[in-house]
Design a binder for these strands. Structure first.
Lengths: 213, 213
DNA sequence: AATAATTTGCTTGTCAGCCAACAAATAACA
DNA sequence: TGTTATTTGTTGGCTGACAAGCAAATTATT
């Protein structure tokens, strides 16, 4: 395999970089390669060696850095999950309330469409959490972090009179998150039969209806 | 490990059974054991040998029947998926329309609560479909079979005047299925923080609202 | 500045354990 | 006795893990 041809070629021959830079870049490239491969084949059907080589390094490096295969999967999960959280926070344009809630939902679909590889990995991790204790706790945190802003917006919407008073903020927020995840999962499994924009529009519409005062 | 102690002990010493019975039972027991183990550890982290022994047979039998590990996973997926389809069909008490639709949704939650092991396997398969071509086609069929009755009920409900005319039956049916799956997934990952009955009630309520004329 | 000493990053060699797959033997049934 | 079901023996390939070595960078010494 010609490891040289890569989306993000390594510097020519020389190019003095500090140890820290070397290390950081190597780690970044390893996770990036892992992302690509895991998006295609899932969290089990790969070898440490191929990740190393796909990243343009040796077969031994992943084990050297991450200690074990489990360690690599954990690092990847953290990487993806935290990256996703950061993106969501940035997307909050409207003041808290119904509008922002709808914006968050839209963002969910848009970011899935924009970066299907990363999204696929995120959802592979979510699926794996069903049967993997270590991931489950990480996902528990992600859930909490994801539900909270939704619930907050519901409460703000209720206070502002945009959302009817009888909705249970936390339960509904959980259900909204589930709905978002379910819809995106469907699209990832069967992108040919499901148009993401249509799904997004329907989702938003039904959300408005079920929250309307 | 004492394979004798099993939920469903093998007949004592003798007990004359036909070859067909022997074979059928063995296969049933193997799939049952696979179900238990996969529910705990996912679709990859098990060995053919342990399935055989957990079922009370030898380590070699799974490979003998299913040919390969992939074959076993495929058979398990088919088993689970088809079993689930059968159950859903039986639950149709009301005449087609909104009531039956709500019944189908309830059934989804109830069957998850009644048989969490099987449900966990189903959802592990759904998750695995993201990154496994072979499963993807099977799940594509399941999706079609699952969406159709929902969409039919929506159409019937519209005809009967229980559901407003402007809903797009197919798109909404897809979204409802996604919502069901998403909600059950959340519960499976984090059963301590999510009460299935509450989620079911909220789901049904919001369904009524968003379909109401 | 130059170079020696040391640390840190990365690669290559190696091995032990695991496990799927197949073949041959044995047991249950007809 | 013949046939089908099941078990046991065996093997060959894979791969995670670790250790030892080489290379690049940093620090210390002069």
């Amino acid at each position: 395999m010609d490891a040289v041809v890569s989306t993000n070629a390594k510097p020519g021959a020389a190019a003095r970089r500090s140890q820290l830079e070397r290390r950081r870049e190597a780690e970044r490239r390893l996770l990036q390669a892992a992302e690509r491969i895991v998006a295609e084949r899932g969290l089990e059907r790969f070898t440490l060696a191929e990740i190393g080589e796909a990243a343009g390094y040796s077969r031994g490096l992943p084990a050297h850095y991450f200690g074990s295969k489990e360690g690599l999967v954990g690092a990847l999960a953290t990487h993806i999950v935290s990256g996703f959280g950061r993106g969501a926070a940035r997307a909050e344009k409207h003041p808290a309330g119904l509008e922002r809630l709808l914006g968050v939902a839209s963002y969910y679909f848009e970011s899935a469409g924009r970066d299907p590889v990363r999204t696929r990995v995120l959802f592979a991790v979510l699926g794996e959490a069903l049967t993997n204790e270590a991931l489950r706790t990480r996902i528990g945190e992600l859930n909490a972090h994801s539900v909270k802003p939704i619930a907050d917006n519901i409460r703000a919407g209720i206070a502002a009179g945009d959302i009817r008073k009888s909705v249970n903020a936390n339960a509904t927020a959980t259900l909204i998150l589930s709905g978002l995840r379910g819809a995106v999962t469907q699209w990832l499994i069967d992108p040919k039969h499901i148009d993401l924009k249509t799904v997004r529009a329907e989702f938003i519409a039904s959300l408005k209806r079920s929250l309307a005062p």
